[in-house]
Design a protein around this nucleic acid. Structure first.
Lengths: 242, 242
DNA sequence: GCCGATTTGTCCGTATGTATC
DNA sequence: CGATACATACGGACAAATCGG
């Protein structure tokens, strides 16, 4: 729900790029032209463009202009710089999706979990295991831990739909940022069970471990998202610092 | 080489965070205090902080302050949002490193390479295979393709030191941005040969495929960087859009 | 090669809004 | 309610790179 002006402009230009109104390789209108079109200051246009640079949609070239380097993808891209729910990502990629909760438990943070997650020892958490099924194929196996004091009232049913919807829209939790680390790990028995893996196939998975903070600065989520390699891809854009 | 004021401030604060002058969990001085300390406008401070948010070092909480969420890592982190050379990353992680060029060739872009890289068919490129050795262990196997018209004069010797140094400091190429896709792929015979892999171990690698553009907007590099899973980790920070 | 117009990059000061305490 | 702190936005100024005449 963009409220800020620059977010609206960002989204408008982003849509135009995706629809190829601004085609690959060509220059966008100059900042001055965009500023006239959107009737705002040049700074506001620049903020919108900065966002598009972050996601690798355009590149800015001093003295020349801003060039579109977005190409419509044929592969499934699941993550970018934004925090996106599984549902949002599936919709963006035009895929059917389904989530199955295979485990739901309330438990207390022990030393081991505290160590790897950063949760304080002794806190109560919800521990959920979910399988995400895309186009009929089980592709992702998730271990989710949510701090009970923040995610109060979470149930297996809610987890089957969308936990973030519940947190944001029902509980009013404001999600700020999520630190993510991507690694490759050996397959476990649980992975084998829920992702239908044969032994002759890949013996490891792409794992995204994320720790997420709310508006109070409280770490309230620790998640391990284990992805089948053949369908995993993670895109980022890097910029050379001057 | 930061020339911009906000980059200096960014680096100064970044150093303080890494040295834990601003410790994990605590608030940084307010923007107004920092603006006084660095004797600049609040906007400039904000740009520096925005950069620290991007790399997941801090989180900004409206009405409260900016909180440090950086924890010194024990694992080797190789990439963030910045374009970094292998040498720069090794130094940042306090590791000994070495690069071996195992193949160097000049060739022409055929249909297949054009397809996957985005290079125009028929262009001349340098094709290099390199092994990166860290702390005595061969961890990364790279396939690099550089457009000859941009990287003119590249040799195997240069590739053994630093290609980016040559491009930036000798040829004056200005590197802008690099689109990266992370996937997990099966091991090939070449991987096995150069990374000393036993068959009972991982049967796949973490692969970073990057396409890099220069200041003219020319795609001049296509690289596949194949990483041993046990030493691979890629960190990013995601922000929830409003 | 120079000059001026265009375009992006950096920076400042100020004003107002919103959230926290 | 007021003080503090971050968020958004505007307008102006100058620098640096590019391009065409």
């Amino acid at each position: 729900m963009p409220k800020a002006r620059y977010q609206d402009i960002y989204n408008t230009i982003k849509d135009r790029i995706e629809e190829q109104t601004y085609p690959f390789g060509q220059l966008l209108p100059s900042e001055n032209e965009l500023k006239t079109e959107f009737d705002c200051s040049r700074n506001t246009v620049r903020r919108a463009i900065a966002g598009l640079i972050d996601i690798g949609y355009v590149q800015a070239m001093q003295g020349k202009g801003v060039r579109c380097i977005f190409e419509p993808e044929n592969t499934v891209s699941f993550f970018s710089n934004e925090i996106e729910t599984f549902r949002e990502a599936s919709i963006r990629n035009h895929l059917t999706y389904e989530t199955t909760v295979v485990h739901f438990e309330e438990c207390t943070v022990d030393k081991e979990l505290a160590e790897k997650s950063g949760f304080p020892e002794g806190e109560d958490v919800y521990y959920i295991q979910r399988v995400h099924v895309i186009d009929g194929k089980p592709l992702i196996f998730n271990h989710n831990y949510f701090l009970k004091s923040v995610a109060e009232g979470l149930t297996g049913e809610i987890a089957g739909v969308s936990i973030y919807d519940y947190l944001e829209n029902t509980l009013g939790v404001r999600i700020i940022n999520s630190k993510r680390v991507i690694t490759v790990e050996k397959i476990t028995a649980l992975d084998k069970k829920y992702l239908n893996l044969s032994t002759r196939d890949y013996n490891c998975l792409a794992v995204i471990t994320s720790t997420t903070y709310d508006g109070d600065g409280t770490l309230f989520e620790y998640t391990q998202s284990r992805h089948l390699p053949s369908y995993f891809s993670f895109s980022t854009n890097a910029v050379r610092k001057k």
